[in-house]
């Protein structure tokens, strides 16, 4: 078996067992969507271990729990008839997601315009990442200039709870782990002066999480991921 295949299977197993750290786990979540080999490896791994989950007695959960689930469904937008359910699990952000859907098409246009301007008017970013939500809608543009500064351009207004803040992260390498580029206090374009990092690479992960005011207390992402995406080099 070649090393590459072995590595994919190993990664899939560690992902399924829950042994990856949060950043690597998120990376696999993302890669599964566009790498059929990894998707197949994860599927096979899940089904290898599934028998262990089935050892407990089968049966329904308690009725009270179903009632809680059912009322949770009431608060969730009903799926479009016949179409796929595109509903955020976090229903209090529903308006944001709806706006996001509308912004989706505009986003690619904005991206094209933004790219054109950035090539003409300012230092060329080393990499550009389009950060997307769970539903794959492009919501934030990150341009990393590779000189410890990065420009963050939200494409929608995010609804951040009071006393919380958006924090921008990147994963320069597995060894370094996630590094904060800075806080995003409002849904406005901002240029962050981050720490000195290795030159950003193609496919480097960028993400934004919701953290307590002042930013993550641990220096690592602790809150829910709002959006994430992988860098591309402008051609």
């Amino acid at each position: 078996m070649s090393t590459a295949i072995e590595n994919i299977n190993e990664l899939a197993d560690e992902y399924v067992l829950g042994l990856l750290d949060a950043a690597d786990h998120a990376l696999v979540d993302e890669r599964i969507e566009h790498e059929p080999e990894l998707r197949a490896a994860v599927a096979a791994s899940r089904d290898r271990f599934l028998a262990l989950d089935l050892l407990s007695a089968a049966g329904a959960g308690p009725d009270g729990l179903w009632d809680r689930i059912a009322s949770g469904l009431d608060e969730t937008r009903a799926p479009a008839s016949g179409g796929p359910a595109k509903v955020a699990a976090n229903d209090n952000r529903e308006t944001v997601w709806r706006l996001a859907a509308l912004a989706g098409m505009a986003a690619s246009l904005l991206l094209a315009i933004g790219l054109g301007f950035s090539l003409l008017l300012r230092p060329e970013p080393q990499v550009i990442a389009v950060l997307v939500n769970d539903a794959g809608e492009p919501l934030v543009l990150v341009e990393d200039f590779g000189d410890a500064s990065a420009r963050i351009t939200p494409l929608v207004a995010f609804d951040v709870p009071e006393n919380q803040v958006m924090q921008v992260w990147t994963l320069p390498s597995k060894e370094m782990g996630p590094v904060s580029l800075g806080l995003l206090p409002r849904s406005e374009t901002i240029t962050l002066d981050g720490p000195d990092l290795p030159q950003p690479q193609e496919a480097q992960l960028y993400e934004i999480t919701i953290e307590q005011a002042g930013g993550s207390p641990t220096g690592r992402p602790t809150g829910p991921i709002l959006v994430k995406g992988f860098a591309k080099q402008p051609r």
């Binding site: 407990s56 049966g59 959960g61």
Partner: peptide, 8 residues
């Protein structure tokens, strides 16, 4: 839920 809920 009725088939798998308890075991989940």
């Amino acid at each position: 839920f009725e088939r798998e809920g308890g075991r989940m």
